[in-house]
Design a protein around this nucleic acid. Sequence first.
DNA 1: ATATATTTTTAGACATATCTAAATTTAAAT
DNA 2: ATTTAAATTTAGATATGTCTAAAAATATAT
Lengths: 219, 219
Amino acid sequence: MFTQAEENYLKAIYALENESSESISTNNIALKMETKASSVTDMLKKLAAKKLVEYKPYKGVHLTFEGEKVALKVIRKHRLWEYFLVKKLKFSWDSVHEIAEQLEHIQSDDLVNSLDAFLGFPKKDPHGDPIPDKDGIVVSNTSINMLGMKVGDVGVLNGVKDSTDAFLRYLDKKNLALGDRIKIIDIEPYDNSVYIETKTHHMSISKHVAKNLYLKNKK
Amino acid sequence: MFTQAEENYLKAIYALENESSESISTNNIALKMETKASSVTDMLKKLAAKKLVEYKPYKGVHLTFEGEKVALKVIRKHRLWEYFLVKKLKFSWDSVHEIAEQLEHIQSDDLVNSLDAFLGFPKKDPHGDPIPDKDGIVVSNTSINMLGMKVGDVGVLNGVKDSTDAFLRYLDKKNLALGDRIKIIDIEPYDNSVYIETKTHHMSISKHVAKNLYLKNKK
DNA sequence: ATATATTTTTAGACATATCTAAATTTAAAT
DNA sequence: ATTTAAATTTAGATATGTCTAAAAATATAT
């Protein structure tokens, strides 16, 4: 159906879309795939011609519905095989990625679904990532409140409790937006304020504000 | 290590070498692989450069020790995966070939050996073909005496009990040679003589002679 | 033994996927 | 608003594996 190269690009774009809500650039993809930007451009044209991605030169790319379906299928296979390797063949959870990178490209719906049944329809792979079901439905990582996070945790800002203009204006002023990747650097025991790092800056967030922010676990 | 295409050629050449002892021609391979003779020539040059086959233009080809090792590894994987599909995933034995054709190219010694252990070190795949062990040792199809064969059986002449010059001259005269593919057409109940078919002719073999001929099962 | 047929190889083309280096577009900075 | 820098795309090259059509080698037949 699709080549391994095509599948790998779709998987990478899917991952980038879920890591942050910024639009996906050629360089982003090149970095993630350890290849050159010019190779990415070539492939994006090919994927766009097949209507798997929406691609505007110089303007970035995003998956179409069809492209996401393909990506999810590959991810489903990857995670099911990882589960098989760890639970049945007794591999350690940190040694299965490379092998799953190969197995994820085996083409057979029967195989994937039989494997799924054989494993007892697991919901998560050995790394804790959710396994899409046969219709491509992923149990999305539930958002958690920033107050519940620990130092070192990373998440993507994906919701607010307080959605008043005042609060949103405050976020604007602090240069925080939905989709931003946030890392918890420190939590001040004295007042429960949270010191965070974003892609561009560091800042301190009061307990009151933290209570109003929801983050999705980064995969 | 080797590309899928290379592995598929090695596997095909291995199979041809075991089907008959005639030297393997470009066309033989092209037919088995459903490709063109010119493509085969190209690949044979590549495999010869890597010392996986011995290739003399216009004169045919045969596997080197190294090439046979690679072929046996691929066959081992193919048969182990077939066993897995049938015994664990409940596929029917006649529906697993295509999937195994893909799985046989997954590269990981750890994976193959863990799978082997998980399956309980099976000796034969669901079609009855022997599974090479991790050192590439195949339990060769044991030779059976022609007298023990039934009508319809096929085998390759691979040994004689009587190795006197007189008997070998007799075989020469009858145009029978080691490596010849032989099919049992009829067995005469009256005198236990065997009517056989070879690639080029038909003939009747007396019970006395049949007793002195050993055949290897054709895979 | 020479003509004919078959097999095999070569030559040149194409598709996929990649790269380097140059050109172009967009973003940032003064 | 220009210049400078960074990101992106294009152009041209390479490697793999395949094909068609033509040339060369081998086998077959009279």
